[in-house]
Design a protein around this nucleic acid. Structure first.
Lengths: 198, 198
DNA sequence: GTCTATAGTCGGATAGAC
DNA sequence: GTCTATCCGACTATAGAC
């Protein structure tokens, strides 16, 4: 047969991306073969190369797209408040909400850094740093105005992001706690960690 | 030639374990080949199978050993104080110190869970849970006595461990901050996060 | 205890038919 | 747009010489 009935290029491209994401998240980039991805999509291995130049691009494209989407989403979601407390609350809520809605992307973005070529790694790191800076500026502003109490804004940034992102390691939809409840708990801890407990 | 000059079984076993650890930490379990490990040790690939039944055991043995060592080290290092604040401080200090001294082990223990067979995964998870419970009990005790203020001891446990373990992602020996300084900063944040800021 | 050689499988990627 | 067939290299693991 010549092609899957009803198939078309755009849809296949999405299918490949989605299948690769699921498999990379489950088994890790290095452990997944192009043949496996092809099988999941329902095409032959050779057909994948109509949509991606190689396996590496499959990975780097999804990581870069994830970080760009994350930054774009923050650009829309950020609150306009001037109060550092409100801004931090807003960031925590945004970070958790976004990350819980894209568990696979997040997992891959943290786990597969070492499987990127140096060039792709640099691009990803630059984007990640931009995102970290969002939080760092909030913390620095709050500290400068005496509302937050922290020894080192950079360290506090990394600490909070690690704390928040760790949620993706145990969160399961339909678990004991609702996303909203989780947000509240982490907001409280984040504020406390920077000396601004309510 | 029959064998490396001066080689002996015990030393080779250690060399293999160390080389595998370094390579797994750098490139990931799935991306590392037995040939690579053999090359790093200076033996032929076939010789590795005198020391390990297979590649999987190389991974699971080092992960289980790491967690057992961690628990044993805590057994020796734990302070006998009754004050939850002091106990939390002690735990944070211990966790950071131990984790910064075994960066490769820690990295592997967090990254390679999905490359374990189900049986080995279960063993590792059980050990990890024992360690998490150490912190959870400290937090519960502090909360019960009104010294800590937290909404959910289990979540606070996972949040603090994620925050602390995140250090291994950016820490470099000889960097801007000494381990001691890092410990101080994180103690402050941890106490704050559970509502016990000094 | 380590070597060489090899079995048997699977990997990424390409060529060319339809 | 997808298929089949294939190149060629790499993989884990084993067998048997020394």
């Amino acid at each position: 047969m010549a092609r899957r009935s009803g198939s078309n290029g755009e849809q296949t491209a999405r299918d490949i991306r989605d299948a690769a994401m699921r498999l990379f998240a489950d088994q890790g980039y290095a452990a997944v073969s192009m043949r496996q991805i092809a099988r999941a999509v329902g095409v032959q291995a050779g057909a994948l190369y109509l949509y991606t130049p190689d396996k590496q691009s499959l990975l780097s494209d999804m990581m870069i797209a994830h970080l760009e989407d994350l930054l774009a989403a923050w650009g829309k979601a950020r609150c306009e408040s001037d109060d550092p407390r409100a801004r931090l609350e807003d960031f925590v809520r945004f970070h958790i909400r976004y990350h819980l809605s894209r568990v696979d992307e997040v997992f891959i973005a943290y786990m597969e850094l070492r499987n990127l070529t140096p060039e792709n790694f640099a691009r990803v790191e630059r984007l990640r740093r931009l995102y970290e800076n969002v939080l760092q500026e909030i913390l620095q502003d709050g500290a400068a105005r005496g509302i937050f109490r922290l020894s080192d804004a950079r360290i506090a940034t990394l600490a909070l992001i690690a704390m928040l992102t760790g949620i993706t390691n145990w969160y399961r939809a339909g678990g004991r706690l609702s996303p909203e409840r989780i947000e509240e708990i982490y907001i409280e801890m984040a504020l406390g960690a920077v000396g601004a407990a309510r």
